[in-house]
Measured scan of single mutants.
Amino acid sequence: GTLHLNGVTVKVPSLEKAIKAAKKFAKKYNLEVQVHGNTVHVH
């Protein structure tokens, strides 16, 4: 999967790991997580 954090793109081995990391990051910075196919966006 691919993880987008505020314009930074990170390749992640699995989508589940990407979503987990995204949710952790989003919670910390009070951001929103959106999943588009195998790409996770945090903004």
Score class of each variant (00 low, 15 high):
His43Cys: 15
Tyr29Arg: 02
Lys23Gln: 10
Pro13Val: 13
His4Arg: 08
Val12Met: 14
Ala26Thr: 01
Glu16Lys: 13
Leu5Arg: 04
Pro13Glu: 10
Phe25Trp: 13
His4Asp: 05
Lys11Val: 10
Asn38Met: 09
Leu5Pro: 02
Lys27Trp: 05
Val40Lys: 02
Gln34Tyr: 14
Ala18Asp: 00
Val33Met: 06
His4Glu: 05
Gly7Pro: 03
Gly1Ser: 08
Gly37His: 06
Ile19Glu: 00
Asn6Phe: 15
Ala18Ile: 09
Ala21Met: 14
Thr9Ser: 10
Leu5Ser: 04
Val42His: 03
Thr9Trp: 14
Val12Gln: 03
Gly37Ile: 07
Ala21Val: 11
Val8Met: 11
His4Ala: 05
Asn38Pro: 04
Ala22Glu: 00
Leu31Asp: 00
Ser14Arg: 06
Asn30Arg: 07
Val42Asn: 03
Thr2Asn: 08
Val40Asp: 01
Pro13Arg: 13
Ala21Ile: 14
Leu15Gln: 00
Gly7Gln: 06
Ser14Asp: 13
Thr2Ala: 08
Val40Ser: 02
Ser14Cys: 12
Ile19Ser: 01
Val12Thr: 06
Glu16Gly: 09
Val10Cys: 15
Thr39Pro: 02
His36Thr: 12
Pro13Leu: 11
Glu16Trp: 12
Ile19Val: 06
Lys24Glu: 09
Val33Pro: 01
Lys28Gln: 07
Lys23Cys: 15
His4Phe: 09
Ala26Cys: 02
Lys17His: 09
Asn30Asp: 07
Lys17Phe: 12
Lys11Met: 11
Asn30Gly: 14
Ser14Trp: 11
Pro13Cys: 15
Glu32Lys: 09
Val12Phe: 15
Gln34Glu: 13
Lys20Pro: 00
Thr9Leu: 14
Leu15Trp: 06
Lys20Glu: 11
Val12Glu: 01
Asn38Arg: 09
Leu15Cys: 04
Val10Gln: 03
Glu16Asn: 09
Tyr29His: 08
Val10Phe: 14
Gly37Arg: 05
Ala21Cys: 15
Val8Glu: 03
Val8Trp: 14
Lys27Glu: 06
Thr9Cys: 15
Glu32Arg: 06
His4Pro: 02
Val8Gln: 06
Thr9His: 09
Lys28Glu: 04
Ser14Asn: 12
Lys23Leu: 13
Lys24Phe: 10
His43Ala: 09
Gly37Pro: 03
Ala21Lys: 09
Lys27Arg: 11
Val35Pro: 02
Asn6Leu: 15
Lys17Val: 12
Val35Phe: 06
Leu5Tyr: 15
Glu16Arg: 13
Lys17Gly: 07
Phe25Gly: 00
Glu16Pro: 07
Val33Asn: 00
Ala21Phe: 14
Gly1Lys: 06
Leu3Cys: 10
Lys24Val: 06
Leu3Asn: 02
Asn6Gly: 12
Phe25Tyr: 11
Lys17Tyr: 13
His4Thr: 09
Val35Cys: 13
Leu31Trp: 07
Asn30Tyr: 08
Lys24Cys: 15
Ala21Tyr: 14
Lys20Ile: 12
Ala22Thr: 03
His43Leu: 13
His43Lys: 10
Lys28Phe: 08
Lys27Asp: 04
Lys23Asp: 01
His43Ser: 10
Gly37Tyr: 05
Asn30Ile: 06
Gln34Met: 12
Leu31Val: 06
Gln34Arg: 11
Val33Ile: 13
Glu16Thr: 11
His41Asp: 05
Glu32Gly: 05
Ile19Phe: 05
Ala22Leu: 15
Gly7Ile: 09
Val8Phe: 13
Lys20Arg: 11
Glu32Asn: 09
Val8Asn: 06
Leu3Trp: 03
His41Pro: 02
Leu31Cys: 10
Lys17Arg: 12
Ala26Ser: 03
Gly7Arg: 06
Ala18Phe: 09
Gln34Ile: 14
Gly37Val: 07
Lys24Trp: 13
Val42Met: 11
Lys20Trp: 09
Leu15Ala: 01
Gln34Val: 14
Asn6His: 14
Val12Asp: 01
His36Arg: 09
Val8Lys: 12
Gly1Leu: 12
Glu16Asp: 10
Lys11Tyr: 14
Lys28Thr: 03
Thr39Asp: 08
Ala22Pro: 00
Thr9Gly: 04
Leu3Ile: 12
Val8Pro: 03
Tyr29Trp: 09
Lys23Val: 11
Ile19Arg: 01
Lys20His: 07
Leu31Arg: 01
Glu32Met: 12
Thr2Cys: 15
His36Cys: 12
Ala26Trp: 10
Asn30Pro: 02
Tyr29Ser: 00
Gly7Cys: 15
Lys17Met: 13
Glu32Phe: 10
Asn30Ser: 07
Val35Asp: 02
Thr2Met: 13
Pro13Ala: 13
Val35Lys: 03
Ala22Val: 15
